[in-house]
Each structure stands twice: as structure tokens, then as C-alpha cells.
Write a protein that binds this DNA or RNA. Sequence first.
DNA 1: TTCCGTGCAAAATCTTTGCAGATAC
DNA 2: GTATCTGCAAAGATTTTGCACGGAA
Lengths: 151, 151
Amino acid sequence: MTAYSSASLKAELNERGWRLTPQRETILHIFQELPQGEHLSAEDLYQRLEERGEGISLSTIYRTLKLMARMGILRELDLGEGHKHYEINQPYPHHHHHLICIRCNETIEFKNESILKTGAKTAQKEGYHLLDCQLTIHGVCPKCQRSLIPV
Amino acid sequence: MTAYSSASLKAELNERGWRLTPQRETILHIFQELPQGEHLSAEDLYQRLEERGEGISLSTIYRTLKLMARMGILRELDLGEGHKHYEINQPYPHHHHHLICIRCNETIEFKNESILKTGAKTAQKEGYHLLDCQLTIHGVCPKCQRSLIPV
DNA sequence: TTCCGTGCAAAATCTTTGCAGATAC
DNA sequence: GTATCTGCAAAGATTTTGCACGGAA
């Protein structure tokens, strides 16, 4: 369930000449404790940490999110809200995709094993080292279709 | 090849109480003339129009791109460059997906018929009206893997 | 004639960056 | 001890918005 321990995070960081800081560890823990299907924006994370009394500056949050996404630990999602969201990048069978209503931003998660296979095959064919693979479906949800407001 | 004519754009706009303006028509044409695999940011489009002497304000460009994406005419891409890109939303067999290097942003397009089918099926199952369906694969390209700079 | 759309300028949002002090290794 | 990391404040980039005028239906 837990993709990364603090120890393996430290190992991966050190391997690249970087350091495990309390901030990085805290942020990893927050994401690991997050229920399936929740995802946080930088601001969400900032506020959650403030509430816990473990405040971390927004700069560090942005830097850490980007770092962990580039390491393949987090995946970056564009859920149509004008800012990025992040969630733990989990392997099969937890790996999933998103169906998003472009009007109200309702988001539905769904799984599909064959997409991950296609992603892995495509990356391999091009010699890419795979980090993440996400199918994003945009549409209009049933509720918004019934609404009288066009677009 | 051409998914929308000016006439069908006008019809679709009018249907919703909106209007076909020269700006909207011009922007549609730009995208229709774009070679397969090219995609434009708002700024790209703005500059291209300036060069042609058909200048359109950035506000209108942003408003039109959003409008056309919500109508399903354009698809909005996040290619990791800090701003959105847009391209014509083409049906099978031109429909395609993107493999992106998170370090240098090199982007490779690829096709896969079964993903579109999965997207359509998933949208239908949830009662969504499908607008777009894109598999985005993030990874590190061969060249960047060889580079000595970590992340 | 009506009301939608455009352009301009200003504002709002989100994200990045420079720098000095702190700290992991 | 040294290079990396953090927090702060400021800057940068992208996108949105209010308003008056112009134009499509």
C-alpha cells in the first residue's frame, strides 16, 4: 500500500546528491495517509500543514511537489481547476484514471489495466523511462447536461 | 479532414444563443490549417495573428480558446511548459495521445484506437457527454537519461 | 434594436526565484 | 565543513475580469 518509506525516499534522494529533510518527509507522509481518490493542490497541502501546526512555507511546498513528481513519487493532475493537484503515484492495482466534467469539475476515478500496459509499451518503444501514465477524459456530466446554461 | 466549417461553427454557436464573429472564424481557420502534430499556446496564436496582420487581442484569444475547448472543437493539452496548448480535436483515425519528457518537454504523438474506445465506453457508463479523451504519458527521454544532471 | 463580443487596462492566481541563514551528510 | 534546503519577500507568468464601444442577428 505504501509505495515509499522514509528510508527509501532518503536513499533515492541521496543517490542523486540530495537530502532528506523533515519537510520532505512530512509531505510524503501526508500523501501516504491520504485516502484513495483524494488529491491535494499546493494550497490544500499548505493549509493542512498549518492546521497540524507543522507549517511549511509555500515555496518549499511547490519545490517539493515538483521534485517528487519528477522522481515519480507523485503524479501531477490537471483537474480543470486552474491549478495542479497531486496524489501518490501508485502502481497496479491502485493505478487509476480520471473522468472530469468541464463544467462543474466533478471528477470520477476509474481503473483500466490495459491502459497502463499500453503506456508502458509505448514508453519502452520510444526508450523513455516511464514515470506516469494517465488517461484523462473530458466531458459534460449528466447533471450539467440537464442544466439550461449553455457551456 | 476539416472537422468544422465556418457554417457548422456558426450553427453550433447560434444554437446556444452566441454569435459567429470574424475573430472566432479566424481562430478556427488557424487551427484547421495547422499541420498534424502542431499545437499552439494562447501567446503563439496571438503572435501568429500579429504577423499576419489579423491581430486579435489576448483577452479574446483566451476567451475563444476556452469556448472552443468547451464546445469540443479544440482540445486543451498540458505539455508541461507552464501554459496550455491547443489543437483541433480530431476524431478517429486522427485522434492521438502524447508521450512527454518531463525534463526537456520533448513530445511524441502516438495513436491507439482502443484507448478512444475505452474513453467512450467509460463516459457512456457514467452518463457523460464525451468531449475529449487523452492518454498522457510522462517519462524521461533517452537523451535526458544519458544527461548527468539529476532531475 | 438588442444583447453578445471585443479590446484595453487592471487585477487575480498560481508559481518561481534571489538571498541569507539553517541544516543534512 | 560544505553544499543543499528553507523561508521570506519579491518577481514572473499566465489567465481572468470590468467596462465602454462596436457589431451580429
